[in-house]
Write a protein that binds this DNA or RNA. Structure first.
Lengths: 336, 336
DNA sequence: TCAGGTTACGTTACCGGTAAACCTGTGGCA
DNA sequence: TGCCACAGGTTTACCGGTAACGTAACCTGA
């Protein structure tokens, strides 16, 4: 056994089984061109030597052999993206791929830095979150010539493929829903400001719908904090302190909306009578609250799965749509 | 430019800059053995050609050059592990490493399958969650001779290194705390049963403390469901239906405890007067609830960071402890 | 009976870096 | 003057697979 780290390689197996390296390679990859007898002998030898394949060598030697997929999310601590990641990982690992992760913290520069790193591993493909990227990122990916899936926020002109839904439509749908329910003085509580392009899209859609219905947004409060429970709590406190006589507040996401609900409960504000509360995302907690949160449920796992499958389909040369819509669902709860 | 995918390589840069491949390699890695003039020329040429390094080739050619780290968590959808992953990723990406993820779904077999895959990429090191692994996993890792960090549940005899805290102690601490607060009839609501070894450790510690204090656990309900809000809600409902006159319930984690709180609120059970509720983990939501949840706060991000740093220290040959304790903190809230 | 296809292999070249050993000119010093 | 150290390189070998092509033995049908 050639003993760089004491590991057996194809050559060791070949020698011991009395065949060539290439035959061993073919057998282990489950190809054709060998007899049943040879296959059994090679397999037995490989097992006996404790052979651990070297994907590094395989991917290096042949551009087609990489089973690595890069996936970049805005934040690893987001509950929603945890589910997306889970969907991606389940689908890909079942097909023999491995996932390399990254977080861009809602920054296109950080995303570009990550893409630069991940590309240096010559992955089979890359999954990005969102549809706004730096020119450098787009260049790098175009040049790399590998499948790219942009998820979460749908785009009709993707770098390569897009899987997700329209954030703008989500916001608009909620706006129209609230108008139908008779709400007239809507506010918004968000976080991360310009950084989160997709949250901004929802707000844009929301505002457009409200204005279109003749009752434009009355006030908004956008913190530069992490969009979590705290930010929802204090964001609502700040917004209400401005005495705008709001009758409903749309939140950046469910976490923040639940923070808002906590604030209402603490201050004796009745929901939905005194104030309506609406979230976005569809986290599990939202449905076991004393009052079920009105929100948009996003099929996170399905998006991850669809992205992974689109990527693999392209790698296999199967035909597939460039744009896949995974619809969200407005779930009227008891808070608006 | 040799055009396998149209990408420039060291040789292209070398030719154009009028030096050898090796000199280019040294310059790009920031080594020594070249003049300032040569360095500037090489750097300029690399930029001009849009050189993207090939880490695959580097890691393949030299076992020491890998910047890949594998990280396996029980579930990617867990809020706590999202933070651990974040801690790991931040620390590692700052140091130039990339993270390959995996989920074992609380199964040592799935973990072994993942380890087999990740090792085939010849990573610089591996981070695992938990301390119970299949013999095959331990063999593979020992044989690979790379740094391994076991996180989350501390072990005094790690495969290589261990970073975390004792789940058993967490449970015991809560047990003692509740006894001091005068609770005498404690119950437990959990999930995943045998599969989640660490949850079981907490329960063991909890029971030991209660028994030691003369008031053993009265009843428990362990669902084979995902340990989330729903499971907490229905688990508590089922447990209380047995009319055991419990005065406090310890939950597998905060999500389940919050589900339990939701159940109490729905049924008019006063917390903490009629029933105490205790969680585990320290999720953000727990602190903006109408009543702050009594729980154990786990420094998730710090554990991830410490694990990453221990791994890198070992890679650099710096001295470091094999076992690093990251203490948890019992936070008495208003629910017990 | 023999051209032509098929099966079951073997051979060769190559992927793009890095380690290690090897050169070469220059300056310092005994 | 001769020797050595050192800066600033170059050369060579190798990592472990895979693609592409070559080939001998066997089969098959006209």
């Amino acid at each position: 056994m050639s003993d760089r780290k004491g590991k057996a390689n194809l050559e060791d197996i070949a020698r011991q089984a009395g065949v060539s390296k290439m035959t061993v390679s073919r057998v282990l990859r489950g190809g054709t061109g060998f007899s049943d007898d040879t296959r059994d002998r090679v397999m037995a030898t490989a097992r006996q030597l404790g052979y651990v394949p070297n994907r590094l060598a395989a991917a290096f030697g042949s551009d087609a052999a990489s089973t690595l997929v890069g996936m970049c999310v805005p934040r690893l601590t987001s509950g929603l993206f945890g589910h997306v990641l889970d969907g991606v990982d389940r689908a890909l690992s079942r097909l023999g791929y491995q996932v390399m992760i990254g977080a861009n913290n809602h920054s296109t520069e950080e995303e570009e830095a990550w893409v630069r790193q991940v590309i240096s591993w010559r992955p089979a493909g890359v999954i990005l979150s969102g549809r706004s990227h730096s020119p450098g990122t787009v260049d790098l990916l175009r040049n790399a010539g590998m499948p790219v899936v942009e998820i979460w926020d749908l785009t009709t002109s993707p770098i390569d493929m897009s899987v997700g839904f329209s954030h703008h439509d989500c916001g608009a749908e909620i706006g129209q829903f609230l108008l139908r329910r008779g709400r007239r003085r809507a506010g918004y509580v968000g976080a991360l400001a310009r950084a989160d392009v997709m949250g901004q899209s929802r707000l844009d859609g929301f505002q457009a719908a409200l204005s279109g219905g003749g009752h434009p947004l009355v006030g908004k409060e956008v913190l530069s904090d992490t969009p979590g429970f705290y930010a929802g709590y204090y964001g609502l406190e700040t917004l209400l302190a401005r005495n705008l006589h709001l009758d409903v507040v749309y939140f950046h996401n469910d976490e923040m909306a639940i923070g808002g609900l906590a604030y209402c409960q603490a201050r004796g504000i009745r929901v939905p009578e005194d104030l309506g509360i609406v979230g976005w995302g569809g986290m599990e907690a939202a449905s076991v609250l004393p009052k079920r949160l009105t929100t948009t449920v996003v099929p996170t796992t399905a998006i991850g799965k669809a992205a992974a499958e689109a990527l693999v389909a392209r790698l296999r040369g199967e035909p597939g749509a460039d744009v896949t819509v995974i619809p969200t669902r407005l779930v009227p709860g008891e808070t608006a």
